[in-house]
Amino acid sequence: MTKTYSIEGIDCANCAKRLEDTLNKIPQTQARLSFATERLKITAPDEHFDAVMKEVRRVTKILEPDAVMAELR
């Protein structure tokens, strides 16, 4: 399953890259973060998706405390 989130409040391209790299270390997860469009795309197996998202939010909170994430339709 792939879901797209808007993620605002990351203010440097390097920080975005760093966050993306860290998120990609979560097992069975593929993360794509676009600094320019402020979109985060997470792909993970359906059955683990909620757990993965919990981890994604936790990691994001640590690395980018100012970032605001919201799911997009």
Binding site: C12, A13, N14, K17, F35, A36, T37
Partner: peptide, 12 residues
């Protein structure tokens, strides 16, 4: 910084 931000921004 000048490079890390401006180059991807150029292509985008």
């Amino acid at each position: 910084c000048a490079l890390v931000i401006s180059v991807p921004l150029t292509f985008f």
